[in-house]
Design a binder for these strands. Structure first.
Length: 448
RNA sequence: GUGGUCAUAGCUCAGUAGGUUAGAGCGUUGGAUUGUGGUUCCGAAGGUCGUGGGUUCGAGCCCCAUUGAUCACCCCA
């Protein structure tokens, strides 16, 4: 038999890794809950029909398709098809690509039972047949929160609060929240007399970070902008502070355009509803992610001291449920990429030391009768909420303590003939090495 | 999907100009110590050198293919 392996771009999560992942997951979940979001889970697989066409042609290629069961070639004339036209005939289902489309599908299917505004969070894996590289996996987790059914910019403001609260609880300080508004992008294109090249321009300026201003200018001219217009556009791309002064500056330049007026009015409202100190928030006109469905504010969070792509993204989409036949529902949402947050926190050593402590106290029985004695005390302690385990055999003490050290357990309760005779245990603190005896009923008070 | 780099023990790596039985540290495991660990000492296990072909008297080393990792592009969390 050949060596076992796992598919490209997937990972196992060991107990030590899971402890850290759970820390991130639990932190984000508790923040979501504190804003009134409710949990939702959807199947790993969706009907392919639900998924295709939602992520652009590029996205469709990244969908994992699931081969139909049974004799899937039964009705197929192999001579008449190529692989492209064959796929929809032999695969009816696919793995979900994100959590937003399943949400839209869920809301449309349950529209009569849902009260708007509908706030839900969802933390599950998604799959993309992308080529893996740093911070990029074929199976990874998204932690989404979305609000459907309200236009209020309080939602956007709450997401800024969620960002600051979650990252501060995780201990991540070096990050920047970037905000843009789709209409701001439109206004800028219009300003340069290139309103019709909106899509091409956003793709180019989205790359500004990578190719630099000269690169952007070159590509803009290549698609037909004049030298002057491309310079005009470039001058708008600097990230500016998200303040009234910043907005006033934008208003001066874009306030005479219809889309500019709308964008600035939205952003001004958002600013008014946002928490007061916002030095991590920047307005960034070059931010152009996921334009296929975003229609209002767009968010992205990037770590500033680690070379890594965005660790969260989101925005407002006016009509996501429209593709499933339910018009006029506005939604706004964000998504944390916990795999990347993990990588960033690992690189910056931000995980708390005690994170991988699973057990509070290990009982070390010296012989068979002691083992029976131990499990009774252990049960009592568990009722009090202590995490306790009993070493399963009466092995040599060295071996049992080695086990405790390996699992970073703080307390060892040693029990042999002597202890049993007087209903006590010997409690050893494995950090300090101190040891004392204690009545078996008083352990709880002793270890606290 | 396109292009570059890499692949030796569980992990991190040596391996000299192709030449006999492929090494180290850490980790694992047994003992020194029949109820006291994280230190020390001694011993052991563990690799058909990612996989499959080829060149050669001879390949861990050279060539081709394949798989995986990694980086860039595309795109994105």
């Amino acid at each position: 038999m050949s060596k076992p392996s796992i598919p490209q771009g997937t990972r196992d999560f060991s107990p030590a890794v899971m402890a850290k992942r759970k820390f991130i997951l639990n932190t984000i979940e508790s923040v979501y809950k504190s804003f009134g979001f409710m949990p939702l889970e959807t199947p790993a697989m969706e009907n392919l029909q639900t998924l295709t066409g939602k992520y652009g042609t590029e996205g469709d290629q990244l969908l994992f398709k699931i081969l139909n069961n049974g004799d899937y070639l039964k009705d197929i004339q192999l001579t008449e098809v190529d692989s492209k036209s064959l796929t929809p005939k032999i695969a009816d289902r696919g793995l979900r690509y994100d959590l937003t489309v399943p949400l839209a599908r869920f809301v449309v299917m349950n529209r009569h039972e849902i009260t708007l505004p509908f706030k839900r969070y969802q933390m599950q894996p998604v799959w993309r047949a992308d080529r893996p590289q740093k911070g990029r996996y074929r199976e990874f987790w998204q932690c989404d929160a979305d609000v459907l059914g309200t236009d209020s910019l309080l939602c956007e403001a709450d997401f800024i609060r969620i960002y600051t609260s979650a990252f501060s609880q995780l201990g991540l300080k070096d990050y920047e929240i970037r905000i843009n508004h789709r209409k701001l992008l439109e206004a800028v294109c219009e300003l340069c007399g290139a309103g019709d090249k909106f899509k091409a321009i956003t793709i180019i300026i989205d790359k500004a970070d990578k190719i630099g201003n000269d690169g952007v200018a070159k590509e803009l001219i290549a698609i037909g902008l004049s030298e002057a217009d491309s310079q005009k556009l470039l001058s708008q791309l600097d990230r500016i502070a998200f303040t009234e002064a910043g907005l006033a500056k934008l208003e001066k330049e874009l306030g005479h355009l219809e889309s500019g007026v709308k964008a600035i009015s939205d952003l001004r409202q958002l600013l008014a509803l946002s928490p007061s100190s916002l030095n991590t928030v920047k307005l960034d006109i070059s931010l152009a992610r996921g334009l296929d469905y975003y229609t209002g504010c767009i968010f992205e969070v990037v770590p500033t001291s680690v070379k890594m792509g965005s660790i969260s993204g989101g925005g407002r989409y006016d009509d996501l449920t429209g593709v499933f036949g339910m018009k006029g529902i506005s939604g706004v949402g964000i998504s944390f990429g916990i795999d990347r947050i993990y990588d960033v926190m690992e690189e910056l050593k931000l995980f708390p030391e005690s994170g991988d402590q699973f057990t509070d106290i290990l009982f070390c029985p010296m012989d068979e009768p002691a083992l029976l004695y131990c499990i009774q005390i252990a049960d009592q302690l568990r009722h009090s909420g202590v995490k306790v385990e009993v070493y399963p055999t009466a092995s040599k003490l060295k071996k049992q303590l080695d086990y405790a050290n390996d699992k970073k357990i703080l307390w060892a309760a040693i029990v042999g003939e002597n202890e049993m005779r007087t209903s006590i245990v010997s409690l050893k603190n494995l950090r300090t090495g101190e040891q004392d005896t204690c009545k078996s009923g008083d352990i709880l008070g002793f270890i606290h």
